[in-house]
Design a protein around this nucleic acid. Sequence first.
DNA 1: CAAAGATACGTAGTTGACTACATATTATCA
DNA 2: TGATAATATGTAGTCAACTACGTATCTTTG
Lengths: 165, 165
Amino acid sequence: MNIIDEAGILAISTRLQRLSDQLRKDGLLIYQACGIDFEPKWFPVIWALTAKPLLSVVEIAEEIGYTHPSTISLLKELEKIRLVRSRKDKADERKRLIALTPKGRELVEKMRPVWHVMARSLAELTDTPNNLLRAVEEVEAKLKERSFLECAKKIWKTGKDDVSL
Amino acid sequence: MNIIDEAGILAISTRLQRLSDQLRKDGLLIYQACGIDFEPKWFPVIWALTAKPLLSVVEIAEEIGYTHPSTISLLKELEKIRLVRSRKDKADERKRLIALTPKGRELVEKMRPVWHVMARSLAELTDTPNNLLRAVEEVEAKLKERSFLECAKKIWKTGKDDVSL
DNA sequence: CAAAGATACGTAGTTGACTACATATTATCA
DNA sequence: TGATAATATGTAGTCAACTACGTATCTTTG
């Protein structure tokens, strides 16, 4: 992976993805090592339902920043293993209200110490001169103001008048 | 995406992936805006072949840090649109040697100014107190020493003796 | 120098997110 | 109040990476 290192910022997308994958895979191994039958991809949904115990499909999707179809397929898996349940909202028949089952709440309590260890491990791993979580937050904030595309358009325009190009 | 923000470091994997996706999607739009028929996912392969003009499949995979099956499917696409070509290595019949075609080299030259703009845009977007690229490099380096799993195991052990748990 | 192991490439199927589209219910307003 | 728009959910198929496995060729070694 020498060459990609040299590409520097141009390959940042690739490297973010690889880092994300690596952490998720190890996340799964950590759950397994603790004898917990849980997949990292379920975390956002379960976390959302722990914070807000009764949510519709779209509300969960918004909370976790996924599209609703992705959320639906996660919920399908979680319902299958009985960690969440759902029922129609009587006030609005379009909505399906989701909540943790007792089994789900029990598992959350069992996972809390594992989450604590994960959080401490990740804190340690990202405790470097440039903090990864902070960096992500900072870039997310900048992207909210101006997307990569818009930023490139701006630089393209100013570059056109620039002799150095 | 309130809840996931609050999950902080535990949701770092999700956030890295989302950021990566966002950048890649805009990357595609930037190529399109420049009238260039190129997909961001091809960048690592093309970049590698620009730096080292003749490589086998596995060598490319190693350079860009992908598995060889992923590399093969990228190469298939690139051969289809005639940006790269391949021939058997006469010295070692197992190997297939890959190189840019003249069309490929021409496109690289056409893309260079676009890459320049992208690099400048990304540099601007990641020019924050905590530099994203540096942060990624730093975490990659730490993970090389000790994986997330190993780190968690260590913390788990020390935590067991700790009254605060 | 043949058998066993290592290496290179390829195929098939999986994964975890996505987009596009379809349907059902509710809300709005002329 | 009926037509239209908006919202909520669902389905189907895509995408870009992956793992697992298989075959062909080369290398090593008893």
